[in-house]
Simulated assay, not measured.
Amino acid sequence: MAPLSSPQKNNPKRQRLKQSIRSLIEFRGASELDQNQFQSTARKLYDGPAGAVLYLASKLSLHDPLVGRILKTRRFDVTEFRNILDIGAGAGQILGHLLRETHPEARLVACDLSHQMLKRARTRMGSPRPDYLSADLTCLPFQDESFDCVTCGWVLEYLKDPRHGLSEIYRVLQPGGSLFLMATEDRFSGMLNSATWKCRTYNRIELQQAFEETGLPWKEQHWFTPIHQFLKLGGIIVEATKPLEAVEELTADAVSTTTQS
């Protein structure tokens, strides 16, 4: 298990240098546009030619096979889940691995902001098993506690405030359910990714705090390979679990109500 991050004092000079580099490279729309405009930009990007080459790009960057290795080797074990939501299904980069690695009777729901990306995913998967639905991460059209697992790959970058999306994930997750999430980190490679895919980046410590504030503490950090971990490449890959306290509180309330009656 990779150690979880702990807050550290940042070197002021290093921080100023990083901010200067970010201002030159990173996509500025993440800070200059409001949330609706930001998401509209993302939808147009993925509906168009960039979305059409996303699957090939994920292969060339090795993200697709490396995500598959994490699931296949059960570093994040999806075999135990029966209701799985893949948020930002894109071209099916995670969904394809879920089809292969999950229980054959597990329910798979793929959602994405882009209708065109869902069409591409459906065609590429060639399977009737997943359900496909256009949805906004900040307003998921599902009942509370509908899923025991949520996967979310490189989607949170299209939210100005990650807590808006994480709160929705918390809502649709069952107590004890797991979240497997990947996000672009504010390192040089992440800044280049931001410029290419018109998204923002995240500071690892700040993102961990956002998770904690929304009730989804990190259980484990993953890395694609030991080399990625040593060089701090590959972005932020985390596993989080919705605490079981929600069930315990409901049980306590039920006992209290029964006693009073």
Score class of each variant (00 low, 15 high):
209 Q>D: 15
236 I>K: 04
29 G>M: 05
118 L>G: 04
114 S>H: 02
59 K>W: 08
219 K>C: 08
215 G>A: 03
241 T>G: 04
259 T>E: 10
157 E>S: 09
116 Q>E: 14
90 G>I: 05
79 T>V: 11
103 H>T: 06
55 Y>E: 14
250 L>Q: 15
85 L>A: 05
136 D>N: 10
249 E>R: 07
194 S>G: 11
195 A>V: 07
146 S>G: 15
199 C>N: 13
104 P>V: 02
178 S>P: 13
46 Y>I: 04
16 R>N: 12
54 L>Q: 05
165 G>F: 04
255 V>D: 03
55 Y>L: 12
37 Q>E: 15
93 Q>R: 12
147 F>T: 05
207 L>S: 04
157 E>Y: 03
83 N>L: 01
193 N>K: 08
57 A>D: 13
34 D>C: 15
130 P>H: 00
104 P>F: 01
237 I>Y: 04
205 I>H: 08
98 L>D: 01
132 Y>S: 01
158 Y>N: 14
188 F>K: 08
40 S>V: 00
261 S>G: 11
192 L>F: 14
3 P>V: 08
74 R>S: 14
241 T>N: 10
4 L>M: 07
170 Y>D: 06
195 A>N: 08
63 H>R: 09
211 F>Q: 02
217 P>Q: 09
87 I>A: 02
251 T>D: 10
143 Q>R: 12
68 G>F: 01
8 Q>I: 15
102 T>F: 01
103 H>Q: 09
55 Y>Q: 09
52 A>R: 09
92 G>N: 01
240 A>T: 06
197 W>Y: 09
132 Y>L: 08
57 A>H: 10
211 F>A: 01
148 D>F: 00
138 T>L: 05
84 I>Y: 01
171 R>A: 04
179 L>G: 13
97 H>N: 06
55 Y>P: 00
121 A>Y: 00
162 P>M: 06
180 F>I: 10
131 D>Y: 09
94 I>Y: 00
81 F>T: 11
134 S>R: 08
59 K>R: 10
226 P>D: 02
163 R>P: 00
94 I>L: 06
230 F>E: 09
79 T>K: 11
1 M>P: 15
178 S>R: 07
62 L>N: 10
30 A>E: 06
239 E>A: 05
246 A>T: 12
202 Y>W: 11
12 P>N: 13
37 Q>C: 15
210 A>Y: 01
260 Q>I: 09
195 A>F: 07
110 A>H: 02
153 G>C: 09
204 R>D: 14
138 T>M: 09
138 T>K: 08
105 E>R: 10
164 H>P: 01
140 L>K: 07
17 L>K: 09
203 N>S: 08
224 F>L: 05
215 G>F: 06
130 P>A: 00
182 M>I: 11
223 W>A: 15
167 S>L: 10
210 A>R: 01
177 G>E: 03
16 R>G: 03
260 Q>A: 13
226 P>E: 02
235 G>N: 05
81 F>K: 12
185 E>W: 00
51 G>H: 03
211 F>W: 06
41 T>V: 12
24 L>A: 13
258 T>Y: 04
63 H>Q: 13
33 L>Q: 09
76 F>E: 01
105 E>V: 11
85 L>T: 09
90 G>A: 05
144 D>A: 12
33 L>P: 14
93 Q>G: 15
175 P>Q: 02
1 M>Y: 13
133 L>S: 01
181 L>D: 00
175 P>F: 02
59 K>N: 13
103 H>P: 02
141 P>F: 06
34 D>M: 06
63 H>E: 13
54 L>E: 11
64 D>K: 10
157 E>Q: 10
